[in-house]
Write a protein that binds this DNA or RNA. Structure first.
Lengths: 144, 144
DNA sequence: ATACTAAACGATAAAAGTTATCGTTCAATA
DNA sequence: TATTGAACGATAACTTTTATCGTTTAGTAT
């Protein structure tokens, strides 16, 4: 679940058992005004205008807390490091949101619907890459 | 060494205008035996068994060359750094394989087919995250 | 309101991943 | 076989992220 726009910040914090600090609140409100997929550095630069003494570490720590709390979502659950695909067959990925394990699922096995070859704006489609995100059997058991 | 074994790789190199070096060939053949989504470090560890003097830099450089040549594919075209999603609406991503720009596309606008709530193996699906990969209008023009 | 404690903070060192530099070696070609 | 640009190895540098640690602050219990 993503941000409930109407929910006050204090409530969000109480629900997630985190303290309402000045830095955290300004960070949250700053992030809500941003668009796209900003990096921690970009968020840091923006929030520094309002709280000049804030530390980059605080930005990182709070972004993680927000993501863990479900206040914000990560753009991608894939590895941060460069990874190469060894499976030559057309396939997609199954990603566990708990343990972050990524496994392959065949294009056919996934059975996705119709695809487009063009998108509005003149984007020429080469392929679709689907992540099926959820909880793997192991993590359902171990409640990790 | 046998001529037959080296022939396909030699062809691959000639097609892409790169030299057939011992390191490159062993790297390629090692990678072809691997599964999943190995990191450069993992590839390095494996190839070192056959060419102990190989450098990690060589592994990185050649992985890039292989990816550029289309010999191998990157698992994800997303940012290497942590990114947070500012769009609260259900949406997917349109990714240009040339300039790597990532833009949002609404769930509805993408119009994807039926989704599953369970996968074989007991995986519990939360959501689908789709990357529509291709070439953006700008890169089609500028031939970048 | 005050004191106490755990959480959060800022500064910064360290770690992890990747890229750049540079002198040496080697593959392609002529 | 000689030449030359590409590729190599070693390693420094850089980027991104995490860990450490002393200080400050929010939540709460008095």
């Amino acid at each position: 679940m993503l941000v409930n726009e109407t929910k006050p910040f204090r409530e969000l914090c109480r629900e997630n058992g985190i303290a309402v600090t000045h830095q955290r609140q300004v960070l949250y409100e700053t992030m809500k005004t941003m668009h796209g997929h900003p990096s921690p550095e970009e968020v840091y630069a923006r929030v520094k205008k309002k709280v000049p003494a804030i530390s980059l570490a605080t930005v990182y720590k709070n972004i993680h807390i927000f993501v863990e709390s479900g206040v914000f979502r990560e753009v991608s659950l894939h590895h941060g490091s460069v990874r190469v695909e060894m499976n030559g067959e057309p396939h997609h990925h199954v990603v566990c949101s708990k343990c972050r394990k990524i496994t392959d699922i065949g294009e056919k096995e996934l059975g996705l619907g119709a695809k487009r070859s063009r998108l509005p704006g003149g984007f020429l489609v080469e392929r679709y890459a689907v992540d099926v995100i959820g909880v793997c059997a192991k993590c359902q058991k171990s409640d990790c």
